[in-house]
Design a protein around this nucleic acid. Structure first.
Length: 259
DNA sequence: ATGCCCTTATGGTAAGGA
């Protein structure tokens, strides 16, 4: 089974590339983030023509997540149970589904904006709610993973230049502690291979030649439980998808499971 | 080498991204 996660930065803007990539990559299950569309705008029909069902949590112009699957889609949960609110609303940042033998969450963790900002505190609360929501599956016998844009670089090696990030979100001890707490609940970081250069970055800013200069970050993560991690045959960042006109600023992370 | 911001909702400008 081939499973992947990809922040598409608008499923509407990315649809031609998304459909082509699903076909060329042979992905069975895709966790998507930043759909940036209302539920009624979601391209169910085009995806169904390629054989994919979709579990969607999308409410409008910001955020939005989905799980696409061509190997079954059951036990769908829309939204993080007991998830925190921001500005009085639960944002569409999580959706879960069981796809064949594997259960997954697709997550888009809040950005945080600035250290100490309300959004940063919300980000940390959101991680708490995520950990509690996945604890039972993380400790279970069924292959399970939380895939998505975590908006945290796990280590200093996961950003192109740590000195640039001093005092900024994505690298703080509190954010990294939230990742550590997830690992302590039974999940491990499935680190993909880079297909070029030494480190498996997954995001490069559109500005200032970020991609050609490889000024990247590894913030799109796959956290799997023991049965999931044992089944991993290969994992890599498909950096080809970051190239050219009409690319997202994130590349897909692809995991092959021997199931 | 894969290229010098992109996306949304708007109705010229604002907000978010990280």
């Amino acid at each position: 089974m081939r499973i992947a996660t990809w922040n598409v930065n608008s499923i509407t803007a990315r649809l031609p590339r998304l459909l082509a990539w699903l076909e060329s990559s042979g992905t069975d299950v895709l966790c998507i983030q930043e759909t940036k569309c209302a539920a009624e705008q979601f391209p169910y029909d085009q995806l169904r023509e390629l054989g994919y069902e979709a579990a969607v949590n999308a409410t409008g112009r910001w955020n939005g997540v989905a799980v696409l699957s061509r190997v079954g889609l059951d036990e769908v949960v829309v939204g993080l149970p007991d998830g925190p609110e921001y500005d009085g609303a639960q944002e569409p940042r999580a959706v879960a589904a069981t796809c064949g033998a594997v259960r997954v969450w697709s997550v888009y963790v809040p950005n945080g904006r600035e250290v100490g900002h309300d959004h940063y505190n919300y980000k940390l609360r959101w991680f708490d709610a995520l950990r509690q929501a996945v604890a039972e599956d993380a400790a279970g016998d069924r292959p399970f993973a939380v895939l998505g844009d975590y908006n945290v670089a796990p280590t200093d090696d996961d950003v192109w230049d740590p000195s640039v990030f001093e005092g900024l979100t994505h690298v703080t001890p509190a954010e990294r502690a939230a990742l550590a707490a997830l690992r302590e609940s039974g999940l491990s970081d499935v680190v993909p291979r880079p297909l070029k250069y030494d480190r498996p970055f997954t995001y490069w800013d559109y500005r200032e030649l970020g991609f050609p200069k490889n000024k990247g970050m590894r913030i799109d993560l796959v956290y799997g439980n023991v049965p999931f991690a044992k089944a991993v045959g290969d994992a890599y960042v498909d950096r080809e998808e970051r190239k050219g006109k009409g690319a997202s600023d994130h590349a897909p992370v692809v995991v092959d499971l021997e199931l």
